[in-house]
């Protein structure tokens, strides 16, 4: 019951936000893009242009055109890129795997480092190593992500001649549409630096978050009671404390995953990684309005989907939120 009503509420919010985003996107397109100019160039006469405008429905009222824009968008048609001369969705979907794989690789690094380090800092707050980690996490939070990228490039490819400073390297085509970095050695070597630099922005944040939450949980009464029952330290840490630490972190992780997509714009630019973010910056330099708008709508969509999925996941893993309210 709770899940259902929650789901309905989220869907409602989802639709409203998507409508707002698409409205903004359409207004931009309407104000900035002149499809006729892009389609036919300078050589065609005024009368012919007018005919074309009429035919494409560009003289219709704003709202009629907006409704048409939404309808097309729902079928996946967001227009044609000026620069690539291809449907924008095709361009975006072509670049999407690169960005997603980069984000996944970075998330992997963040998850596998932040959890043990965060717990360590919470359990041994006075240890030298914990203090060092906390100091570095302040520096990490203060390093702009592109700077981390530049530093990595300078240290590894430039000074040491290790790893790669740009591109995806050799990739493998999966299912005919998904180019993956994860299955070739060259691809894996290429993704290391961009992934580390993308992870560098989230890692300190998560270490601090997990540490803070863990410290809070460790002072809870049920931890004390667990000690009084003679449970082993490991059981108390990993079964009792860790689960309680993780649940609220999940909801933060959802938002941060979305934020990471934003940061891919920076890392992809530094490492010339052929993903959506790099494409977006190219679109901006080429004033490719339909592509910019499509990116806006697409990223908005991905954010909303991630958030909704994470919130539902949260509901499912947190037993204190009861699906059926019943008290024994």
């Amino acid at each position: 019951m709770v899940v259902l009503s929650f789901f309905l509420k989220r869907s409602y919010q989802f639709i409203i936000v998507m409508l707002v985003i698409s409205f903004i996107g359409f207004s931009i397109q309407d104000a900035l893009g002149d499809p006729i100019h892009q389609l036919v160039g300078e050589s065609v006469g005024l009368a012919e242009r007018e005919k074309l405008r009429e035919k494409l429905g560009l003289n219709d009222p704003f709202l009629t055109q907006y409704v048409r824009f939404v309808k097309n968008a729902l079928t996946g048609d967001l227009g044609t890129s000026y620069f690539f001369k291809k449907p924008v969705m095709a361009v975006i979907l072509d670049r999407f795997p690169a960005t997603l794989e980069l984000t996944l690789a970075a998330s992997f690094i963040v998850i596998f480092l932040s959890i043990p380090l965060g717990i360590y800092c919470a359990v041994y707050p006075k240890h030298v190593l914990a203090r060092t980690i906390m100091t570095f996490s302040i520096i990490g939070i203060s390093m702009p992500v592109f700077l981390t990228g530049i530093l990595l490039i300078y240290i590894f490819p430039v000074q040491l001649g290790l790893l790669y400073s740009f591109g995806r390297g050799e990739t493998l085509m999966l299912f005919g549409f998904w180019e993956t970095n994860f299955l070739t050695q060259d691809g894996l070597l290429h993704i290391i630096l961009p992934a580390i630099s993308l992870a560098s922005i989230m890692l300190p944040l998560f270490i601090r978050l997990i540490r803070g939450r863990m410290v809070e949980v460790l002072s809870e009464e049920y931890i004390h009671f667990a000690k009084a029952r003679g449970l082993t330290k490991n059981r108390i840490l990993y079964v009792h404390a860790f689960r309680n630490t993780l649940i609220p972190i999940v909801s933060v992780a959802g938002v941060q995953f979305a934020t990471m997509i934003a940061y891919t714009i920076l890392t992809e630019t530094v490492f010339q990684w052929p993903g959506m973010g790099f494409m977006f910056i190219e679109a901006v330099t080429h004033s490719d309005i339909p592509l910019i708008v499509a990116y806006l709508v697409f990223v908005g969509f991905v954010f909303m989907v991630t958030n909704t999925v994470v919130d539902i996941l949260y509901l499912m893993i947190d037993p204190t939120v009861q699906l059926v309210k019943q008290k024994f």
């Binding site: 936000v17 104000a31 934020t259 934003a262 309005i289 990223v299």
Partner: peptide, 22 residues
């Protein structure tokens, strides 16, 4: 809530990109 969930960095980048094209 919505604005926070959309990541402020993304918002600033996209907004400035659009303004720049104006």
């Amino acid at each position: 809530d919505v604005q926070l969930s959309l990541s402020t960095l993304m918002l600033t980048i996209i907004t400035l990109a659009i303004i720049k094209n104006f």
